[in-house]
């Protein structure tokens, strides 16, 4: 095997842990494609203000006289609606990219915050054991027994509209998943010899928890984080579709889809379909990437 041949020299890139990881990830053509598409989507969303003809959130640039233009028609302001315009006169191409910005930001931010909270809670439960663990985990069970959409609906209804409130609601819905995953992994790690050793060396519980156990919980955590981000994006779209997420004048993908919903029968397909495809593509790609990550990072599935 070539691995042995290169042993003497400086390890080649594909022998480093990251290289191994990368080559195993790239084994799947579908997952590779999904990753590329996802990167393209993210880049487009980030550079949206520089590549779109209209700022769909600026009421001065949106004109109701441009409402419901078919793809390819020209706006009063001179540019072309390549993907058509919606009922308020927003250019759908611009609105979709801006909507993606919000959707991705909400998904990633709420995912990260939930991950930090959930990990801390899960680790604490696993390490503390006893009554603390029981208390925390029953709380998690309780939360997971409610449908996520129900909790989010109630929270957003109580908190009001706005990006920050949506994020709070999504964090409240998601932290339990992280807590449960981390606690499960940490429990099996806790009984391993290296933790025993660390304890005998007299390391503080905090150092053992965050320095020793946590790094070993990372791989399942990454997988859950990816899937949960996709979840969060879909959930935000659902809330917005129901009309309780974000303000009407700053549409995310969910609002764009719901705006076009009523025009479906009258043949103005573009208002719903294009943002719908964008949402589908984003969530689908994140899920594919997450699935492949799980396969690659799970030692039991390693060849």
């Amino acid at each position: 095997m070539s691995d042995q041949l290169s042993n003497a020299a400086k390890p080649r890139f594909r022998d480093t842990p990251f290289g191994v990881f990368l080559s195993r990830y790239l084994d799947s053509k579908v997952a590779t494609l999904a990753f590329v598409v996802l990167v393209v989507i993210i880049v487009l969303a980030i550079i949206a203000p520089w590549i779109t003809p209209q700022n769909p959130y600026d009421l001065a640039q949106v004109d109701v006289l441009d409402a419901r233009m078919a793809p390819g028609e020209e706006a009063f302001a001179g540019y072309t609606f390549w993907l058509g315009s919606d009922g308020a006169g927003r250019d759908l191409y611009s609105a979709m990219l801006y909507g993606l910005r919000i959707s991705l930001m909400v998904g990633v931010l709420s995912g990260l915050i939930a991950m930090v909270i959930g990990t801390a809670v899960g680790l604490t439960a696993a390490y503390a054991g006893g009554r603390v663990e029981t208390l925390i985990m029953r709380l998690v069970d309780l939360q997971l027994s409610f449908p996520a959409i129900l909790i989010a609906l109630m929270l957003v209804a109580a908190l009001g509209k706005g990006v920050d409130k949506i994020i709070v609601a999504l964090v409240a819905v998601q932290w339990a998943y992280y807590a449960r995953t981390v606690r499960g992994t940490a429990l099996s790690e806790r009984s391993k010899e290296y933790v025993e050793a660390a304890r005998n060396l007299g390391l503080s519980p905090r150092r053992i928890l965050f320095g020793q156990i946590m790094p070993n919980c990372l791989s399942p955590l990454i997988v859950v984080a990816t899937i949960q981000t996709a979840h969060a994006i879909a959930l935000e779209a659902t809330l917005s579709f129901l009309g309780i997420g974000l303000p009407q004048t700053e549409p995310s993908l969910g609002i764009l889809i719901s705006n076009g919903f009523e025009y479906m029968l009258s043949g103005k397909y573009w208002i719903s379909i294009f943002p719908g495809v964008a949402l589908l593509l984003t969530v689908f790609c994140i899920n594919l990437v997450g699935d492949q990550l799980r396969d690659v990072l799970n030692p039991r599935l390693a060849k």
């Binding site: 009421l59 109701v64 308020a88 303000p247 004048t249």
Partner: peptide
Amino acid sequence: EAIGQMFTRAGLKMHV
């Protein structure tokens, strides 16, 4: 929303 657009054109800063 259309009212929001129209008042914005008149120079107001509108929220809907």
